[in-house]
């Protein structure tokens, strides 16, 4: 269970560029919750994920994971609990290293690293199996440098890396936004399968309203650093895109403004 309690974050406090990115956010994710997150540009979606993963310190509030207060843990210390995939396919993998080396680095997420071999023989079998399950033919290219892969392949690999050691929470920040529609669909399919198979507790930011409704068991909508709409279960499943836009206007008093937003 992941709990955000009154989490607040202001960037550039006390300067003309002061920006309240998160305004007293409270949110509880039950184990196995798959929550989609939507909202306009600058609503604070990425900041919320960055707070959970410890990229920036929290100004106020608490982050509690399975009863442990992780508010003050450094980013690398928190990594043992979290799997993360970013919007930019370049950010999730090391381009000059082989596919299997990348996977091996990820398989030791949050563990003490020592002087044993980075890639072991038993692991290689596991990697081959998991890569094969992606259906991209990467299992035959384990020795290739990741820099040779396409954006979609890299994103699928990052997804595998984020989950090869089961995370307590999976954080996906518009991880298909940089991909062409066909590849985005493929990576999203892989996401559904991985999350579903392991019942991963997941927060997925998406710019695609249709996906936000279709995937997961809960949807939250953010605006100016606040959660303005939170819907789950049957009610969420019955939502339509026009209804969702309507809800946004009601709750925020303005139109949903996101330059990447896809309605269909």
């Amino acid at each position: 269970m992941l709990e955000l309690k009154h989490v607040t974050k202001t960037f550039n406090k006390g300067t003309v560029n002061e920006k309240v990115a998160l305004d007293d956010i409270s949110l509880t994710l039950e184990d196995g919750d798959f929550v989609t997150v939507i909202g306009g540009n600058g609503a604070g979606k990425s900041t919320m994920l960055n707070m959970i993963s410890g990229v920036y310190p929290v100004d106020r509030g608490q982050i509690v994971l399975d009863g442990n207060d992780i508010t003050h843990l450094s980013e690398p210390k928190r990594a043992r609990y979290l799997g993360r995939v970013f919007q930019d396919p370049m950010l999730g993998t090391a381009a000059d290293m082989q596919i299997e080396e990348n996977l091996a680095l990820a398989a030791r997420r949050g563990q003490r690293r020592g002087l044993s071999w980075n890639v072991t023989r038993e692991e290689r079998e596991l990697f081959r199996e998991r890569l094969a399950s992606l259906g991209l033919g990467l299992e035959d290219r384990m020795g290739d440098k990741v820099g040779l892969l396409s954006g979609g392949q890299r994103q699928a690999l990052t997804l595998l890396m984020a989950t090869i050691k089961q995370p307590d929470v999976l954080l996906l920040d518009e991880h298909t936004a940089a991909l062409d529609p066909k590849t985005a669909k493929l990576v999203l399919g892989i996401t559904e399968r991985i999350v579903g198979d392991a019942h991963l507790t997941t927060l997925m930011v998406t710019h695609n309203m249709h996906d936000a409704i279709r995937l997961g068991n809960r949807l939250i909508m953010m605006d100016t650093g606040r959660i303005i709409y939170d819907v789950r279960g049957e009610e969420k499943a019955r939502l339509t895109v026009p209804e969702l836009l309507q809800k946004f206007e009601e709750a925020s008093g303005g139109e949903l403004d996101n330059d990447r937003m896809l309605l269909g």
């Binding site: 950010l91 680095l105 044993s116």
Partner: peptide
């Protein structure tokens, strides 16, 4: 393991921190 983490640091610090 340590050496690979070191090489990865030069490649993509962002990723390396996300991997703990």
């Amino acid at each position: 393991e340590i050496g690979a983490a070191l090489r990865a640091t030069g490649n993509n610090e962002h990723m390396v921190r996300a991997l703990g």
